[in-house]
Deep mutational scan, measured.
Amino acid sequence: SRSVIRSIIKSSKLNIDHKDYLLDLLNDVKGSKDLKEFHKMLTAILA
């Protein structure tokens, strides 16, 4: 869910600018399909 993804971003080791950017992107995501794609992208970034 959106709140879980937000929590993953906030607890990541990324610097604050990257976190803010990803949180802004997350706010722009519409629909469950796009949310799944965003989660895939985030997982790849944090891997």
Rank of each mutant, 00 (worst) to 15 (best):
H39T: 11
K30G: 06
N15K: 07
D34E: 14
I8G: 01
S1P: 12
D34V: 04
D28F: 11
L42K: 00
L46R: 01
K10I: 15
K40P: 01
K36W: 07
L25A: 06
R6A: 13
K19M: 10
N15V: 07
S11N: 15
D24G: 14
S11R: 11
D28V: 08
F38A: 00
K33E: 15
D28W: 06
I8A: 06
I16L: 09
S12T: 03
K33P: 06
L14K: 01
I5T: 03
V4H: 12
E37Y: 07
K36I: 13
I8N: 03
S7Q: 10
K40W: 05
K13L: 07
I9V: 04
T43K: 10
R2N: 06
S7M: 07
I8P: 00
K40G: 06
Y21D: 04
D34H: 11
K13R: 14
K19T: 03
S32W: 11
V4E: 14
R2A: 09
N27Y: 07
S7D: 13
H39K: 09
N15P: 12
D17I: 15
T43M: 14
I45V: 08
A44K: 15
I16N: 13
S7R: 08
R2E: 07
K19D: 01
S11M: 12
S3Q: 13
I45E: 04
K10N: 13
D20N: 13
S11L: 11
H18K: 06
L26P: 00
L26N: 00
Y21S: 06
M41L: 07
L22N: 00
A44S: 10
N27P: 02
I9G: 01
I5V: 05
D24N: 12
S1M: 13
A47V: 09
L14Y: 02
L14P: 01
H39G: 08
H39N: 08
Y21R: 09
D20G: 15
F38G: 00
I9F: 00
A44D: 09
K30Q: 10
L25V: 06
K40Q: 09
S32Y: 10
I16G: 14
A44Q: 10
G31A: 06
D34F: 08
K19S: 03
D34C: 10
I9L: 02
D28T: 13
R6D: 05
H18R: 05
S12C: 08
D28H: 10
K36D: 13
S1K: 12
A44T: 11
V4P: 02
A47T: 11
I16Q: 15
A44C: 06
S7G: 11
L42S: 00
D24M: 12
L35A: 03
N27Q: 10
L22Y: 04
K33D: 09
R6V: 15
D24R: 13
L46H: 01
I5C: 04
K19I: 12
S7I: 08
S11H: 14
D28P: 02
R2K: 12
L35V: 04
K33S: 09
K19C: 04
S7Y: 06
Y21M: 14
A47N: 10
D28K: 15
N15Y: 05
S12A: 06
S7P: 01
S32P: 12
L46N: 01
I9H: 00
L46M: 07
V4S: 10
V4I: 12
D34T: 06
